[in-house]
Nucleic acid binder design. Structure first.
Lengths: 223, 223
DNA sequence: ACCTGAACACCGTTCAAGT
DNA sequence: ACCTGAACACCGTTCAAGT
C-alpha cells in the first residue's frame, strides 16, 4: 500500500488530466467552442485521440473540468474583506468578467447545474446572506435568485459571443433597429427601450440587476 | 405576377414548415433533445432527410421555430386582466410550466437571446413595468433583470431534466447528501441549506425569486 | 500503466437526379 | 417546385495492439 504512492512525477510533457484541461482551455479561448474536438486536442498534445480517454472519461467531463478551472480562479481572486453587498457584487462581476473573457464558460455554467463551478458560485453568493441579516429560511431562496440571475446572464452573454460580431456597436445598432420596427401594438416595450439597447453597457446593466435583487433582499430583512 | 400567388393549398400530408416543426416538437417531447436528428425527423415524416432543407434552413432554425411555437402559446394563454405584478408572475409561471413540460425549450431559450420567443417574454415582462411606476430609464434594466432570471432558471431546469431521474425526491436526496458532506470550511452555506434542498418546491422557489426582484423594483419606484 | 490510431456508429448538410 | 437518398465531411467513443 506504500509502493503505489511514490513517483507521482513524470516527464513534463507527459499526458495528464491537468495538461489536457489546460490545452482544452487554450483551444476554447482561441478558436471557440466548436473547435474543441478530441482530434484537435490530440493533435495539439501530439498524441492519439484515444489517449485522452485514459485521463478524462468523456467530453462532458472535460468541459466541466475546464469551467471549474476558470471559476476556481475567480473565487480565489475575489476574496476581499468588504461589506456583504460588496462581496456579492465583486463575485458576480468576477463571474461576469470571466465569461466575457471565456464565453464558453457561460455555456457550460448554464448547462450543468451541479458541477463544482456552479456550487462554488452559489456558496460565494449565498454565504453573504446571513451577514446581510436574511433569515435562515429565506437564505436558500435569495441565494437561488442571485445564482439563477447570474447564470441567466452567463447563458445570454455566451450566446451573444457565439455569433460573429465584426463590431459590437454595429450589432447593437442592428438589433435596436429591429426592435424599433416591431409591431407597435405587440411590442410597445421593446420599441420604447430600443434606444437604450443601442448604447447600454452590458456590465453596468448586469450590476443593476444584482442591485435590484439585493434591494429586494433588503425588504425581506425588513430594515 | 398574379400567376404565382394562387394555389397555396396542397394535400394535407404534404411537407410544410409547420408540419415539420410540429413533428420535431413531438420527437423532442417524447424522446428528448438528442433524439431530434434530421434522419429521425425524415423517417417520421416519411420523406428523405434532404427534403426538410427545402422548408427549413438548418437545425438551428428548426429549434428556434419549435421554441417560438411553444412560447407563443404561453403568451396567448397568459393574457388575463389583473394587476401588473400578477401579470408578471403569471407570465413567468407560464414560461416555467412550459419548460417543465418541454425541457428542451429551456435549453433553446438560454441559447438564443434574439429569437422571437425571448423577445416575446421580454416584452411580456417589461411591458408591465410602466404600470408599476418604474421610471423610463430604469425599465430597461428592471426588465432585463426579470428576463435573465427567468432564462437562468430555464437553463437550469432544462439541464436537470436532461439527467435520468428515476425519482425526483431520490435525486434531491442524493444532491442534499452531497452538499452535507462538503468541506465545512469551504461550503458553510450549502451545508446549511442542504435540508431545504431536499424538500423544496422548484416552482415555489421560482416565484419567490420573481417576488424578490419585484420587491427590489418596488424600492426603485420609491413607495 | 499508458499510448496509438484505425474502426464504429453516428451526425448535419449538400447535391445530382428524379417527378 | 418539391422531393429522394446517396455522398461528404465531420463527430465522440471504443478497442485491439503496441510499449
Amino acid at each position: 500500500m506504500v509502493s503505489k504512492a511514490q513517483r507521482t512525477e513524470r516527464r513534463t510533457d507527459a499526458l495528464s488530466k491537468e495538461r489536457i484541461v489546460e490545452t482544452a482551455i487554450e483551444i476554447l479561448d482561441t478558436d471557440g467552442e466548436n473547435a474543441l474536438t478530441f482530434r484537435a486536442l490530440a493533435a495539439r498534445l501530439a498524441t492519439g485521440s484515444g489517449a485522452i480517454y485514459w485521463h478524462v472519461a468523456n467530453k462532458n467531463e472535460l468541459l466541466i473540468a475546464a469551467a471549474d478551472h476558470i471559476v476556481a480562479h475567480v473565487i480565489d481572486d475575489v476574496a476581499g474583506g468588504s461589506a456583504p453587498q460588496e462581496k456579492i457584487r465583486a463575485l458576480a462581476l468576477g463571474v461576469f468578467d470571466a465569461i466575457d473573457a471565456h464565453p464558453w464558460v457561460g455555456t457550460q455554467l448554464s448547462r450543468a447545474p451541479w458541477q463544482t463551478a456552479v456550487l462554488q458560485i452559489f456558496e460565494g453568493l449565498g454565504g453573504q446572506l446571513r451577514a446581510l441579516g436574511v433569515p435562515g429560511r429565506a437564505q436558500f431562496d435569495a441565494g437561488s435568485a442571485l445564482l439563477n440571475y447570474v447564470l441567466g446572464v452567463a447563458g445570454q452573454n455566451a450566446a451573444n459571443a457565439r455569433r460573429p460580431h465584426p463590431d459590437r456597436s454595429a450589432f447593437l445598432d442592428a438589433a435596436a433597429e429591429h426592435w424599433e420596427q416591431l409591431d407597435p401594438a405587440q411590442y410597445p416595450f421593446l420599441r420604447q427601450v430600443a434606444p437604450q439597447l443601442r448604447d447600454h453597457d452590458d456590465r453596468e446593466q448586469f450590476v443593476a440587476g444584482i442591485d435590484l435583487i439585493l434591494a429586494g433582499i433588503g425588504t425581506v430583512v425588513g430594515d
